[in-house]
Amino acid sequence: MSHRTQKIPFSSSATKLIRLSVILMMVGLLSGCKDVNWGWYVVSPFTNTGQTNLQFLLGGLWNTVLLSFTAIVISVFIGLVVALPSLSTNKHWRMVNRVYVEAIRAIPILVLILWVYYGLPVVAGIQINVFWAGVVALALSDSAFQAEIFRAGIQSIDKGQTEASHSINLNYPDTLRFVILPQAIRRVLPALGNQLVYMLKMSSLVSIIGMQELTRRANELVVTEYRPLEIYTVLVLEYLVLILIVSAFVRRLEKKMGANVSA
């Protein structure tokens, strides 16, 4: 219990994990090195080619981050809006929520990305670039899960909270905004963090329509250097480090917000 109260989340626990995973990976690679003809020079920080290649690989980082974060912001917003009718006493409103969630949840993300990029221009006559096609597909796909997370969070709040706010005549929007959502969001924060990590990983799928993010960059480098093992190993590490950093931030946020209530 005692270590939970210490303020360590970012600097040490994350870097420890990173170090550990790098070491494990090295051990794994070294153990098999007799049979494999390694070519680490392609990504070596000590050679000119290696530096250029690493720079090229890392050049996708900003797009991965921007894509994921834009998509998660939109999907949280849509998720919240879609979750609200599920709380209604009117069954038609609840049906709206159900249909949306079930329909969107049933589409594989990769299929949705392809459909938004190649299908939407034909069907709706709107041409969007790869970035926004990726954002739209990721956000839509994720919003169904966000909606379920918010529904669960809101429904977990004691009925007495709504009754108390009714008894002082707070209207429904105010009840949601000042009473229910602040408590519900705090409860679903671990699940939202989960979705953020998931989103960072799923953004790799947008490489299929040519989005210059981490995975696409790695794929392109593999084609020219013909060293898939080394390059994809770097790719794995890129995602690992990125996600460990994001996870540490989410945990920090959780602690900050949770500290307010669990006292």
């Binding site: 004691d158 007495g160 909270q161 009754e163 108390a164 706010s165 008894s167 002082i168 005549n169 707070l170 000042f178 009473v179 602040p182 408590q183 705090r186 307010n260 209530v261």
Partner: peptide, 23 residues
């Protein structure tokens, strides 16, 4: 009408003062 509940139903994320000032 004002109402007082068996389980108080205070808003746990708001301070005592904010529980009153919200309304």
């Amino acid at each position: 009408i004002g109402m007082v509940f068996q389980h108080f139903n205070l808003f746990p994320h708001l301070s005592v003062l904010e529980n009153l000032t919200l309304g």
